Amino acid sequence: MEKLLIVDGMALLFRHYFATAMNHHFMHNSDGVPTNGVQGFIRHVASAIKDSEADHVIVTWDMGATTFRNTISADYKAHRPAPPVELNPQFEMVQRLSEELGFFNIGVRNYEADDVIGTIAKQLEGEYRITVISGDRDLLQLLDDRVEIWLIKKGFTEYNKYDVNRFREEYGIEPPQLIDVKAFMGDTSDGYPGVKGIGEKTALKFIQTYGSVDGTLQHKSQLPKGQQNKIDTFYDDLMISCKLAAIHTTVPLDLEHIRRAMPYTADIEKMCAICDSHELKVASSYLMKL
């Protein structure tokens, strides 16, 4: 079975921007434009293609600051600070370079990259062995027999790798039930509350015991009085969090076009030439060693 690599492009861009920006190492080109995040992205994707032995490559992107989740909750990701000025010019640059390098790029307005990843993974999992690279643990809800999630750690080759068996052993639930866990515990980084006072350990115990948010609510009388009160007090937040925690897996996509466009064969010499033409010498030097 052929192997499909799906990359969360923004996750890699942000990760490698901040990895070097903390030391003020922005790698400006001759026009004075920073390229540190772009060069890290290129190096990481090239390494991932090699490590995953990918036959097909898709890079997904967020398209704009708002999605359908902002209609569910105005607070969703609203607290996040504006990107640093050195990063701003790299958003357009990285997508343009990603296309020049021959990766299939996709983003859909009103949806997050996670939703595009989820839709592709769920609709193509019977045809390919799929590896998803991201920094977002929410994607673990997509795990299946033919879908692995590689969570980025540091550098270009270190991952916290999850398959469905590891997830079951570690969490004691099925991957889709992670949605219910996140609904109870909330997510401060994404700006949705869950049930105030219910943390990950308690939320996980609820789902291990009762199977879902609905199952927990049906057996609420069996819970300690304090937990019952918290659920009653923050019931509306719980219902909203259920919607926000779930990755949308029915994004309207042209799957036939995706199948035709995603095959990829690495041509290191060509990739190096493209990097050199854009003064991405750190990325070019790295590619030559692969």
Rank of each mutant, 00 (worst) to 15 (best):
A113G: 14
F91Q: 06
A48V: 06
T60S: 13
P81W: 10
S52D: 01
V57L: 10
S52E: 03
F68C: 02
F104P: 05
I117Q: 00
T71D: 15
E53C: 08
A74F: 10
T67G: 13
M22H: 02
F68P: 06
H56D: 11
V116H: 10
S47K: 04
A65N: 08
P34Q: 03
V85A: 15
H79L: 13
N70T: 07
T67D: 08
E53Q: 15
R43E: 04
E53D: 06
A65E: 11
L87P: 00
H56L: 12
H25I: 05
A74K: 15
L87A: 09
H79M: 14
D114Y: 00
V57F: 04
V108I: 09
R69T: 11
H28Q: 05
S30T: 06
E86R: 04
G37C: 09
G107P: 09
A78F: 12
V85K: 15
E112T: 07
V33F: 06
Q39A: 00
T66C: 14
T60P: 07
F68K: 12
K77S: 11
G37P: 05
G64Q: 15
R43W: 01
V85W: 05
Y111L: 13
I117V: 08
G40Y: 01
N23Q: 03
L101Y: 13
F91N: 03
M27D: 01
D55F: 09
A74G: 09
V33H: 02
V45G: 10
T20C: 01
N70W: 03
H28A: 04
R69L: 09
V108A: 13
G102K: 13
V94W: 00
V33G: 03
D51E: 04
N36D: 02
I117H: 10
P84V: 05
D31K: 12
A19Y: 00
A78V: 14
T60K: 04
L97I: 13
H56K: 15
K50H: 07
L101V: 06
I72C: 09
N36E: 08
S73H: 06
N88C: 12
A48T: 05
L101H: 11
N105P: 08
N23G: 02
G102H: 13
A74P: 00
K77N: 12
H44V: 02
R69D: 14
A82F: 00
D114T: 14
I72K: 12
R80C: 15
V38R: 03
E92D: 03
M63R: 12
V33C: 04
G37T: 11
E112L: 08
N105W: 15
T20M: 03
V85L: 13
G102S: 08
G40A: 09
E92A: 11
N23S: 06
Y76N: 03
G64Y: 12
I117C: 14
I117E: 10
Q90F: 01
V57A: 14
Q90N: 01
P34C: 04
H25D: 14
I106E: 11
Q95V: 11
